[in-house]
Design a protein around this nucleic acid. Structure first.
Lengths: 337, 337
DNA sequence: CCTGGCACTCCATGGTCCTCAGTGCTAATT
DNA sequence: AATTAGCACTGAGGACCATGGAGTGCCAGG
């Protein structure tokens, strides 16, 4: 049904439309691409492609524009991920090295990705679920409060203040810290609840209330709000592309962190590039957008996702190359931390 | 030169233009405002106001539009900060209570402010400069690395990894922590450099290298990147207003954190509301925008700024009211933390 | 000093015409 | 059977023009 040449025509249509943002006609195609046939033949092929739903015309007597289905075929079969240039690789490296802490790594990564792709970049903080506890610190603040700091092997630091305990003896806090670290240091977060279960029983009943309060805050901080932290950059790039007048909706969708987290989470094939095109996005406001996302992590364990949001009319090979490359570099940096 | 009535006319022009976003004519003014004079009289006043540069016409035979100078006069002399409604106050309270840590307080605050003003909100993290050290924690990570965590009395936590020390004895780290806390706990950050100056001398020469490394990272983390942390929300609101086609520039300016920090820093009168209108903003991209900002802090010491960016054509009394109210509430919440 | 009246200006709106890119179809060619 | 040249047709977009109306500035009278 779709012979080689029709596919070549589709590829050419996508490429030209991405470049020019204007419906592409048969003559222009014949001129700019070495298809070796006349415009009339291309027109016939276009009719076939249109019947199958890969391209469409905005109105009679206009050129053709790819549909979401057309982009999908293009991404799946007609293009390959474009590796970055040497200069770009260098830029990545110099941009990411020198970050002092996790916050800065994430902040730099997201700006880098936005700059490389000229689109909106999203980076999710490394998930807690698969990391393990490096150390727990309990700090008596003045008065009746304790600050708890949990440090994970991925460099993430969670902090909480525990309040309303009545007066607390610093010595007790120190003991509790010892005990807590013995119980959970080195463990996966998923195992922490089990590991601390019988801890209160080991505590002098007089101070048990404090121990229980600390543990409940600890568990809460690990279980809740895992992956809800996300960082954006490059929203200004949205204004450059004229976003089918739905710019408002796109911006709104981008502000809904929960939406973004879900979108990134939808990626099908872990540790691979995922592309969601237009209508494939379940979220209303992003029906005119595409999302290219990838997992990143240390070794072969995925910690979180990064991604890019842009118009369906985007340079898929280039964007995919950038996302993949940045994901890998971040993984390396994290491993080195 | 500018009698009462002319000022009333200017006020009416500003209010109507803010509402309708259309040049306002003399008849409309006479209809909608109880000025008690005829359109012809208003026209005469308008000529005077225009000569003085407070209003302007986009073209002959159009109504008048306030200039930046006009808005300035309006803000300084013709309007008063509009207090929030009871419902809004309740909303603030329920929105801000229940935040578990500083990150969440800031995140909620910025979203709240964006929602209240329907504009872009900016919140700066509490500055380190005026806060004091609550506690310093040194945690030996596996191998050759130490993590340092500095906790301030404003709830802010700074963390750094110190690397490349060779093998480190946990006992030494413990001693160092003791010594460090004795030296600087409770001190203002500004005093820390002096306080630690002669610390290396007190350390067993064998371990002095470690102490020096830790101190240098400590000083660096306090001195550098003080106030560079900023959070935004409500960029989607920019798309709603049609931003004189300069939307792109505004978005770009908003992404430049350093620019925003500088802009907020420019606020003249500390602990007061500051309004910068249009051309008064030194940054190129924000020549069509106004910024309303305020300090917030604990007690009467200012820790950082919050603000709102919107079109010069904004509801100044309402925005100023919201910014002031939110600034106060955040101060209270921080004090309670 | 205010106001009604009036001539004037200029933008916005909407209609008409024309151009032109691009199409689909048919008939001829390979 | 596939390709191509030729041709009539279509519809968007731009140029042009006329018109209505909001709003002005100014003048003369209260």
């Amino acid at each position: 049904m779709l012979d080689e040449r029709k596919l070549a025509v589709l590829r050419a249509v996508v490429e030209d439309f991405v470049n020019t943002n204007e419906p592409v006609g048969s003559r222009a195609l014949a001129d700019r691409h070495p298809l070796g046939v006349s415009p009339a033949t291309i027109r016939n092929d276009m009719v076939a492609l249109e019947e199958d739903g890969y391209i469409t015309q905005p109105h009679t007597s206009a050129g053709r524009v790819p549909t979401d289905k057309g982009y999908r075929l293009f991404v799946d079969r007609l293009s390959s991920v474009k590796p970055l240039s040497v200069a770009e690789r260098r830029a990545i490296e110099s941009f990411l090295t020198g970050a002092v802490d996790l916050d800065e790594i994430v902040a730099r990564t997201v700006r880098l990705l936005a700059q490389l792709t000229r689109q909106v970049a999203i980076v999710q903080y490394p998930s807690l679920t698969r990391s393990s506890v490096q150390h727990v610190e309990l700090v008596p603040l003045g008065g009746q409060r304790i600050m708890m700091v949990v440090i994970t092997n991925t460099g993430r630091v969670e902090q909480r203040v525990i309040d309303g305990l009545g007066d607390v003896d610093p010595g007790v806090v120190g003991d509790l810290r010892e005990m807590l670290n013995r119980a959970i240091a080195g463990r996966h977060l998923a195992d922490v609840p089990d590991a601390v279960e019988d801890l209160p029983a080991q505590v002098d009943p007089e101070h048990r209330r404090v121990a229980v309060a600390v543990l409940s805050v600890l568990l809460e901080s690990l279980v809740e709000r895992h992956e809800e932290k996300i960082v954006l950059a490059g929203t200004a790039n949205l204004a450059a592309v004229d976003f089918a007048a739905s710019l408002r909706e796109v911006l709104e969708a981008l502000e809904e962190n929960m939406v973004l987290i879900r979108l990134l989470g939808e990626a099908k094939d872990p540790s691979m590039l995922t592309v969601r095109i237009g209508e494939e996005n379940l979220h209303e406001g992003l029906r005119t957008a595409s999302i290219v996302s990838a997992d990143y992590g240390v070794g072969n364990q995925s910690l979180a996702k990064i991604g890019v949001v842009g118009p369906t009319r985007m340079d898929y090979p280039g964007t995919m190359g950038a996302v993949r490359a940045v994901a890998r570099y971040v993984g390396q940096i994290l491993a080195g931390q």
